[in-house]
Amino acid sequence: MKPLQLDKVVLSVDGAALFEPLSFSVLPGTVTSLLGPSGSGKSSLLAYLCGILPPAITASGAIRIGDENLGRLPTEKRRLGLLFQDPLLFPHLDVAGNLLFGLSRGGSRAERRRRVDEALASVGLGGFADRDPATLSGGQQARVALLRVLLAEPRALLLDEPFSSLDDDNRERVRKLVFDEAHRRELPTLLVTHDEQDVVAAGGAVINLSGPNADKKE
């Protein structure tokens, strides 16, 4: 896997920059934590990386995976896995349907289904394939959401406070699962969070976002 690199990235609203130009790189298998008050633009930074920035925010600066510049690519070609605060499982599909949606192309129907079943079993959700996502607990939904991202074989993992909606028990378990998978797959991982415990568990670099506008936005 290749590192995720940001080079002089700036986001601005109405011409006012949200933070000082940002340059750093996330090495494969490490988790970099991004801290900052709400409104500091940390979630928007993830949106920019994925190419889903709302039109009101303008951005400049380069983003690269290894040597490949992602700036011009449409979202679906960037292959960055994004986990939101909410699991956002597609409500009209069952658990298997959600995972098949994520699973990268190729393989026979039976083969694909087998991979989905294996993935579910690997996170302790064997037999959940035909369930309605709405009937799953929060922790279970979070695990399915992670699997969905991982099955798409992303080149990096972007986490937008994915543990904050979980209760204490689940938070720890899901966090461990996510970080373990990121290490195992050597994924460069960028974590946006409020939570000091997340930062400790991530164990990687910490970047504090407090730009010129941070106080006003608060």
């Binding site: 994925c50 979202t75 939101f84 597609f90 949606f101 969905r148 991202v149 798409a152």
Partner: peptide
């Protein structure tokens, strides 16, 4: 929720497929 479309896109679905399937 617009994030469903965004999730679909980050999972590799181009806009037309995301519209039809999500």
């Amino acid at each position: 929720d617009p994030r469903y479309r965004q999730v679909a896109a980050t999972l590799g679905a181009p806009p037309s497929r995301a519209w039809l399937t999500v």
